[in-house]
């Protein structure tokens, strides 16, 4: 019968260690040089806001988060397009476009590569009426922009009930200087 032998063995050893144990076994090691060794493996990634939430089905989220951006379009554009046309009446019919003149395939081809495009030459904004996808500023109402592109149709007028969440600004003013984000509550 296999019993609790392993406990027995350790108990004997521990008797010995107990008697030799002193109370100063909490050596404090002062480490002046932090350890930066090791390999770090991908867990999560993000480019544009809410893309993952909206277009990636839960079964694909793990894979999406560990697919490098240069391969995302090939792997996920079709799924994005299916989800977009299923979700939005503004893309329900062939030939439907958003206000950027993109049809479902073009739009989802852009979205499936989840990177943020940033201009180094001037205004940086998700969308300000003039500039499109030149960055993402703190005050940008990115969700409404995305909703408009998804639901708003060719001229941003379709499905008004779905194309604005009616939350247009942060609840605390941003700072004009670094670190820009408001102090915590």
């Amino acid at each position: 019968m296999k019993t609790i032998k392993s406990i027995l063995g350790i108990a004997l050893i521990s008797l010995f260690t107990l008697s030799s144990c002193s109370s100063d076994d909490n050596t404090i090691v002062i480490d002046n040089t932090p350890d930066f060794s090791g390999t770090f493996a991908q867990q999560d990634q993000m480019g544009r806001p809410a893309v993952n939430t909206v277009f990636v089905g839960s079964a694909s989220k793990d894979t999406f988060n560990t697919t490098i951006p240069s391969q995302q379009s090939a792997a996920f554009q079709a799924m994005f397009e299916t989800n977009l046309t299923g979700l939005s009446p503004a893309f329900a019919n062939p030939g439907d476009q958003n206000a950027l003149g993109q049809d479902a395939a073009t739009f989802t081809g852009l979205l499936a590569t989840d990177v943020l495009n940033v201009s180094l030459d001037g205004t940086t904004t998700f969308f300000d009426g003039t500039n499109v996808l030149t960055g993402r500023a703190l005050a940008d109402d990115v969700i409404t922009v995305e909703l408009l592109l998804i639901f708003g149709g060719e001229d941003f007028t379709e499905n008004p009930n779905l194309s604005d969440d009616n939350v247009d600004a942060n609840d605390k003013p941003f700072l004009s200087s670094f670190p820009y984000l408001a102090s915590p509550w």
Binding site: G38, T39, F40, Q45, S119, L120, D121, T134, F178, L181
Partner: peptide, 25 residues
């Protein structure tokens, strides 16, 4: 929050950026 001179990340034109979290193995 990190602020970086444009000259250190391409200087001009458009760059593509994304953030990742990576766990120590």
């Amino acid at each position: 929050v990190v602020e970086v001179p444009k000259s250190l990340i391409g200087g001009s034109g458009t760059i593509n950026v994304w953030a990742e979290s990576k766990g120590k193995q």
